[in-house]
Nucleic acid binder design. Structure first.
Lengths: 256, 256
DNA sequence: CGGCCAGTTGACTCGCATCAATGTATGTGG
DNA sequence: CCACATACATTGATGCGAGTCAACTGGCCG
């Protein structure tokens, strides 16, 4: 792994020059290791840093007054955890690990410096935020208007699509290290019902799950059942990048 | 209204100089009017522009295969609709009006220019995106893990808090021009059940709704019932602004 | 006047929660 | 190597919250 995860992630949006890669690399220094089951921060903790994910899986969550829990994001390598708290002094959610992980803290004020030094990266970070919104949006639809079967199917397809972007895997078989009670908390279902639902999905020969692994048996039919369209995970920055090029050839002070 | 809505909105984050106000004002030119019940765009339409809201209410939505609908955001004056599509070529949701409105289109490539001309505005736009994420997050919690009573109560308090930020109103009485079927679509409930739930809330003397108007009878108890904490709507940019000041006094090329 | 839309109310249904029992794998200390 | 505890998953029985269908009301408008 010569290039950091975050550089590989950002490269999927646009070509980066050496200075930009260096800036991004500087966000992924001095990794800290945490064991599976560890808590990185709790809701309300002071939010001074972001974390880039180098290795492993994490999730963010919120505990409710009645003790139940809502899981809000799943983070995989290349993601940045905490971007949301750019505008807040305290953490809006907790963050905990699903596997052993390596993550790298950088102070959120560093962001401001990046904005000052690279117009391209300003745009890309904004694009990342937009993409995160799109994912949340899709999950809202999922929670609001779908059956348990669709929720589970949709979630699996979302993770499948996100993982394929960076890691290609054959035969639609991949690791998904979320126990069923975490899946339930992500989808607004009970762990019991998640178990039943996987049963149904296997019965229908769409999908099967064993331990931490998923095999998708029929992607097309699964997508149809789930009402899954992958458009919200396929960004298109071409118009933005074109605007950047045009701008680059204008005299520095011109406003257009 | 001598200053545009968007300037007033952004001023709640930080002081702006004349150039920055001018840049923002330039995003709110040539307003277009739409009648209540109008559609601004549909899911899948080409996404070339953002819209700033000058007057009136709008909502974004997604239709499902089975004909049901999920409402995703409510927009009020000062908001910007479409920021999410910065990274996408097509609209992720539809956008329609709840009242007569005036909105102003600006091309999304204009964003790139703004990033290039004002470091403060770069930061503020990123903060706005972060805040939007926080709102979506809270709504996820709301949809995933709450009862109908809590959902309705929470939604009302969210709107109440957002509106109070710019418009102060006495006696906890305000306009909320969403018919019950739209509320239902926002909260993942049927219109019928929304009606029943408002009945319950009135019975409990927490809240009453008449036509397009809400009166909150007991804010504290309502917030308790809803599990509502307003922290997610109270941004704190102090650390970011401090970073900007420090940066301003450094020599231009220094990276720290 | 009649049609339409928003809201209310009641009867019935159903999806998923909850509770409980059981099974299986993994880990720990004596 | 066994006794025990813990985490995760599966399965069945039962109940409740909210959806659905339908009838009815009142206001608005042509």
């Amino acid at each position: 792994m010569d290039k950091s995860c975050i550089v590989r992630h950002f490269r999927t949006y646009a070509e980066l020059d050496a200075h930009e890669e260096e800036l991004l690399d500087s966000l992924e220094k001095s990794p800290q290791a945490f064991r599976r089951g560890g808590v990185i921060w709790e809701e309300g903790d002071e939010a001074t840093d972001f974390y880039t994910i180098r290795r492993g899986w994490l999730f963010s969550y919120r505990y409710m007054e009645d003790g139940s829990r809502q899981v809000l994001d799943i983070f995989v390598p290349g993601d940045i955890a905490g971007l949301r708290e750019f505008a807040f002094s305290g953490r809006l959610t907790g963050l905990a690990t699903l596997t052993d992980v390596e993550i790298c803290a950088f102070p959120k004020t560093r962001m401001t410096e990046v904005f000052g030094e690279s117009l391209l990266l300003s745009n890309l970070f904004f694009a990342v935020a937009a993409r995160e919104q799109a994912v949340l949006l899709e999950r809202l639809v999922n929670l609001g208007r779908r059956t348990a079967l669709q929720k589970v199917a949709h979630f699996v397809l979302e993770m499948y699509t996100r993982l394929q972007r960076t890691n290609n895997f054959p035969d639609n078989h991949f690791r998904l290290p979320l126990p069923q009670h975490v899946l339930g908390d992500a989808l607004g279902l009970s762990a019991v019902h998640v178990s039943r639902t996987f049963g149904e999905l296997k019965e229908a020969e769409l999908l099967c799950r064993d331990g931490g692994h998923i095999s998708i048996l029929d992607v097309d039919r699964l997508a149809q059942v789930a009402g899954f369209k992958s458009t919200y995970l396929r960004e298109d920055l071409s118009s933005v990048l074109r605007a950047l090029e045009n701008r680059a050839v204008l005299p520095p002070g011109s406003t257009g």
